[in-house]
């Protein structure tokens, strides 16, 4: 797990704990647990919502560490400004990662699905939540293994990213045809830039 700290943000939003789980063995159960948590009432509901209080992101669609960091940055900034487009900062991260404005589509593509095999799990909080505690909370709901974030490069499915962002017909990508290293650099740059400017995309 890694912890990113941003001193420019309000204290209660200044820390992001990020872990990469690969493989994940209980995606189906996790998904139904998240959905159920949203509908439970009373104390039990509060507890369940707290237990799944993370952003769950399908790691196959994340092209680099900076890609994820950019989404986190823009989501936390929106939260700090009271400008969230979704209900919580964690869902905002998932929404920002998807190129369209459709929240359901964002969760379906970039969130947990029954077939998810690798997950990036993010918790936005203040410095009062220690990293070990955040990790323990993640381990409590996810059955799988954590690997270093750098393993992301073996997990990214570039063709799916290309499809979601409709990059297939873009001159930049067409010109890089046959040079897969260069194509990845270009896709990564376009995706990061799209995520960074999501708030003004029309």
């Amino acid at each position: 797990m890694e912890t990113f700290t941003n001193p420019h943000f309000p204290r209660n939003l200044s820390v992001a704990h990020v872990a990469l789980f690969a493989p994940v063995n209980n995606a189906k159960d996790l998904r139904s647990r998240i959905i159920k948590a949203a509908t439970l009432d009373g104390d039990e509901g509060e507890q369940e919502r707290q237990a799944v209080n993370f952003a769950f992101i399908d790691a196959r669609l994340i092209t680099s560490r900076l890609h994820l960091q950019t989404a986190i940055y823009q989501a936390v900034m929106a939260e700090a400004q009271g400008a969230l487009r979704t209900k919580k900062v964690h869902s905002e991260i998932v929404w920002i990662l998807n190129p369209t404005n459709n929240i359901t589509e964002a969760l379906r593509r970039y969130g947990v699905s029954d077939t998810t095999r690798s997950l990036l799990v993010v918790r936005i909080d203040g410095p009062d939540l220690p990293a070990e505690r955040a990790k323990k909370d993640m381990d409590a709901i996810i059955s799988g293994e954590t690997v270093p974030l750098d393993k992301l490069q073996d997990i990214t499915e570039w063709n799916t990213v290309k499809k979601h962002y409709k990059l297939g017909q873009d001159t930049a990508i067409l010109e890089a045809k046959g040079d897969s290293a260069r194509e990845k650099v270009l896709i990564n740059e376009i995706v990061i830039s799209s995520v960074a400017s999501k708030s003004i995309a029309s």
């Binding site: 940055y73 823009q74 900034m77 873009d170 001159t171 990061i192 830039s193 960074a196 400017s197």
Partner: peptide, 14 residues
């Protein structure tokens, strides 16, 4: 960027 012109990538927008 999409057209393959060399320009700086975007990192954050407020």
């Amino acid at each position: 960027l999409r057209a393959g012109v060399n320009v700086p990538g975007i990192r954050m927008v407020d």
